[in-house]
Nucleic acid binder design. Structure first.
Length: 869
RNA sequence: GCCCGGAUGGCGAAACUGGCAGACGCACGGGACUUAAAAUCCCGAGGGGCGAAAGCUCCGUGACGGUUCGAUUCCGUCUCCGGGCACCA
């Protein structure tokens, strides 16, 4: 193409106009769907960066923007580092709010949800997030949830899905099940004067506890996860080693039998057991109260106390109450019969729901025994430090395991540790107990008596009982246009076309399961689907998963540290055992970002301190909104949103823009300069970092060298932060410093003391450094710097350590730890040279005059400290 | 109660490995440009005391103590704030 036929670049405006620039680039980006597409096969290394998918509530909030700004910056950075990047997005689109909206606005949940998705997708695109939309996953659509059903069938086949009775919140007024958040102070959220009841329903559970040990053990492998999250999961799993011991009641009370099995971690203290305590909901208690109305009333009060405390979220503050049952149980070790009590501090869903109470060696038992004047018997004494010393009586309760047994028959004199081993062995030998491990982790109840969720693919037949739907008949489609009412249980029960079916086994009439799945099922494996989003033969292709997994970096809120992430880990282990995936864990590295707060409080409608992303984008642009959310605080900490802060960022972007614009104006007006520019550009398109020697000559000017040094220092700082701790706030500060340096050198630039080549190099690099964080402006600047390549995949700049190095450095000189002088030395100065310079300094001389110098500490490049006496 | 974070100017924060505390930004003050304002550019600034000024000096990273030539950083005790779990036997 002849020179004069080249398209004339569009006229640029003097003022930084975010809206104009962002609209221009949005159009280009949206017209090319291949832009952010991951390559199925690539010689490049793969990188899977994932942000937690949102619930489509209708609008993004600032927390989302922050989350996605971090992920997008990382994805773009990895593209620039020539990785094959997978960066997908989707919608966690089943769940209760759609049903609530249906009730409130009379809109079908599907319609409401899909409209919200469309709206939020527009927001995401406006913000410029670089997602591969061809892999979008929408969990409420049958092409996704059919695989939930498929997995459920596999879980059922493997014995990992089972039914059992479980309690639900029931509002008699609504005649329906309530979610925990719909219970307010023990009352229904819609009927403030209707107490919520507990009803037992048959529900589906997934046997996550089968993997309890592995889920715990593999936390070790997750070194790329925050320590905090690993600890939270560890506590959640709650592994505890102990002993089961049978106490005999000496005759049955009812169907629950005549044995109380207690779980204890301290079987070594069992000779100090002076009572057995049962949870109020223990089956033996049920037998006991069946014939004892007075006891029944008391036990019911204990249950009520427990429930009230739990609902108040304040179970720790509950005052301990108990009631003596009138029965005694025999301690199998010494044959002593101890009283059996029922107590409100014993939980039925942990251990066996029964404990032995050892007041002398357990704080809670001690408190309880004091209150009810139960016997307190000391059986552990402190280890004497000197064997000759007599053992002192310790203060009670004495809970340490570093002690010696007394008053414990044949076990006297053993250490607690030895006693636990020997006593557990004896229990097993004699058949009244055994060593065991319990977990706090419970099986995962997935049944929801709701409409807007994945139908559980099971059928109930009068003849064949519980029968799974045949795989070939999947998906079981969730019917549309189902009236969402407030009463009568699950809405699906009122849809005969759905409810009535035929038995897959005998072909006779049967009923479908009307419960739907917990939405945590959807989010437990959605990130696998991204890798192969349109597969209609299987949830995904295993070879594709082997390529992409594990996820290299997952980013989201810490509020999902436990449930979502533990269910996802469980799902992965199950899929691995099925042979579907090879990885043991889904996520190699996890990052949890801090909350966005305003005026010191979490943003909420109640407080009226919600900042709308749309408003920010409209007022300041997407770049400023994103950049500010990265700048205002390090990403793992809470971010206090300040309107004046984002104004400052906008000012910074305008300052950067103006630097390019004004240079362009100058160059455009100087024909000779322009020719030089073209010549330089031609050279620079291949050489990003000029070699030191060539430049050292060319950049003899001090001001030019200063700019060049700052440039390379900036590239280093920004690169280091992307590689390391992700403190994007300091990256941005570094770029601001570079821009300040340029503005500070205005005069040198105007008088031609700074070569145009260097200015262009700075311009190119600022565009490159800003590209991950402020992509719109960065693309515009890239173009203004004369580049025609796509910035998205332009190589990330490299710094030259020699160019970044300082020639001279200032070394502070302290005398007795107090700053007394500053000396300037060459960067490579030896310890001795620095010491001489420091001692020669006038101020230092004055400070040490007449005193005895005891020691001179020299830390090269850092400081000198002269110690006087 | 237990576990995990955090606390630094008027504000958001920085100081990455024990080495000049407060980079960068906001707000503020002063100046330049302007008829004026806005915008922009430049300069100033932790607090106290001394000084006309250049400057000098003391104090200062939630509190108290310790280690060290030297501590925002390491150790101990405590206070407050945030998050998680909660009578877990």
């Amino acid at each position: 193409m002849p020179e004069e036929d080249k398209p004339i670049p569009p006229a640029r405006e003097e003022r930084y106009d975010a809206q104009r620039i962002e609209q221009k680039w949005t159009e280009r980006w949206l017209s090319d769907t291949s832009l952010y597409a991951a390559e199925a096969h690539s010689t490049k290394p793969k990188y899977y960066v994932l942000e937690m998918l949102p619930y489509p509530s209708g609008a993004l909030h600032m927390g989302h923007v922050r989350n996605y700004a971090i992920g997008d910056a990382l994805a773009r950075y990895m593209w620039m580092n020539a990785y094959n990047v997978l960066h997908p997005m989707g919608w966690d689109s089943f769940g209760l709010p759609a049903e609530n909206a249906a009730i409130k606005n009379n809109t079908p949940p599907k319609e409401w949800t899909l409209a919200n998705i469309a709206a939020m997708k527009v927001q995401m695109k406006r913000l410029g997030f670089a997602y591969d939309w061809s892999r979008e996953v929408t969990t409420c659509l049958p092409d996704y949830y059919r695989w939930n059903q498929w997995f459920f069938l596999k879980l059922y086949e493997s014995g990992l899905a089972y039914r059992k009775k479980s309690k639900v919140n029931w509002c008699p007024e609504c005649a329906t099940v309530l979610a925990n958040e719909q219970v307010v102070g023990g009352m229904c959220w819609r009927h403030e004067d209707t107490p919520v009841e507990q009803r037992e329903l048959e529900q589906w559970f997934l046997r996550i506890t089968k993997y309890a040990d592995e889920l715990l053990r593999d936390l070790e492998k997750l070194q790329g996860w925050p320590e905090k999250v690993r600890i939270m999961q560890q506590n959640w799993i709650g592994r505890s080693e102990g002993t089961l011991v049978d106490f005999d009641l000496g005759g049955t009370v009812g169907p629950a039998g005549s044995t109380i099995t207690v779980f204890t971690t301290r079987v070594d203290t069992i000779y100090g057991a002076t009572s057995v305590q049962l949870a109020p909901e223990h089956p033996i208690v049920a037998d006991m109260i069946a014939r004892d109305a007075a006891l029944r009333a008391q036990v019911e009060e204990l249950i009520a106390e427990q429930r009230r405390a739990k609902e108040a979220g304040d179970i720790g503050a509950i005052e301990k109450h108990g009631v003596f049952t009138g029965r005694y149980a025999k301690n199998p070790y010494d044959g002593e019969a101890v009283p059996v009590w029922v107590a409100n501090y014993i939980l039925m869903d942990y251990g066996t729901g029964a404990i032995m109470s050892v007041p002398a060696h357990d704080e809670r038992d001690y408190e309880f025994a004091q209150k009810y004047r139960l016997e307190i018997r000391l059986v552990i004494l402190p280890q004497p430090s000197d064997p000759e010393e007599t053992m002192a009586e310790p203060p009670l309760p004495f809970t340490t395991t570093d002690g010696i047994l007394v008053n414990s028959g044949e076990f006297n004199g053993l250490s607690c540790e030895d006693a636990i081993t020997k006593m557990s062995a004896l229990a097993e030998e004699k058949g009244f107990g055994k060593a065991t491990v319990t977990f706090r982790l419970k099986d995962w109840g997935i049944s929801r008596q709701r409409y807007w969720g994945t139908p559980i693919p099971m059928v109930y037949c009068d003849r064949d009982g519980v029968v799974p739907v045949a795989e070939k008949d999947l998906p079981v489609i969730l019917p549309d246009s189902v009236p969402i009412t407030l009463s009568g249980g699950s809405p699906l029960m009122n849809v005969p076309e759905f409810l009535n079916t035929t038995c897959p086994k005998c072909g006779g009439p049967a009923r479908r399961e009307t419960d739907t799945m917990d939405t945590f099922v959807d989010s437990s494996w959605y990130f696998y689907r991204y890798a192969d989003a349109h597969n209609d033969q299987a949830p995904f292709d295993s070879a594709t998963i082997a390529y992409w997994f594990p996820i290299d970096q997952y980013i989201g809120g810490v509020e999902h540290a436990i449930l979502h992430l533990i269910y996802s880990r469980f799902w992965t282990k199950f899929m691995r055992d099925m042979g579907l995936v090879k990885n043991d864990e889904p996520v190699a590295r996890l990052f949890t970002q801090g909350m966005v707060i305003k005026d010191g409080a979490k943003m909420s409608k109640n407080l009226g301190n919600v900042v709308s992303p749309d408003e920010m984008v409209e007022r300041y642009g997407a770049d400023a909104t994103r950049l500010y959310s990265l700048f205002a605080a390090p990403p793992d900490r809470d971010l206090d949103w300040q309107e004046s802060g984002i104004e400052g960022i906008q000012r910074f972007l305008a300052r950067v823009y103006r630097f390019y614009y004004e240079r362009d104006q100058v160059w455009a007006n100087e024909a000779a300069e322009k020719a030089a520019k073209m010549d330089i550009l031609a050279r620079h398109s291949t050489i990003l970092v000029p070699s030191l020697n060539a430049n050292a000559k060319r950049l003899a000017e001090r001001s030019a060298r200063k700019i060049q040094r700052k440039l390379h220092q900036t590239i280093k700082r920004v690169s280091d932060d992307f590689q390391g701790r992700w403190h994007f706030n300091t990256c941005i500060a570094a770029i601001m410093e570079l821009v300040n340096e340029i503005y500070g050198a205005q005069e040198a630039i105007a008088t031609g003391r700074v070569p145009a080549a260097l200015i262009i190099e700075v311009q190119r690099n600022i565009a490159l450094l800003l590209a991950p964080m402020a992509p719109y402006l960065a693309h515009e600047l890239w173009e203004m710097a004369g580049e025609t390549s796509n910035l998205l995949k332009a190589p990330w700049p490299k710094y030259d350590a020699a160019l970044a190095a300082e020639d001279e450095i200032e070394i502070p000189v302290q005398v007795n730890g107090k700053l007394r002088g500053l000396v300037v030395v060459e960067a490579g100065a030896s310890v001795d040279q620095i010491k001489q310079a420091a001692l020669a300094d006038q101020k230092v001389q004055a400070a040490i005059a007449g005193k005895l110098v005891v020691k001179v500490i020299v830390v090269p490049k850092k400081l000198v400290n002269i110690v006087l006496r």
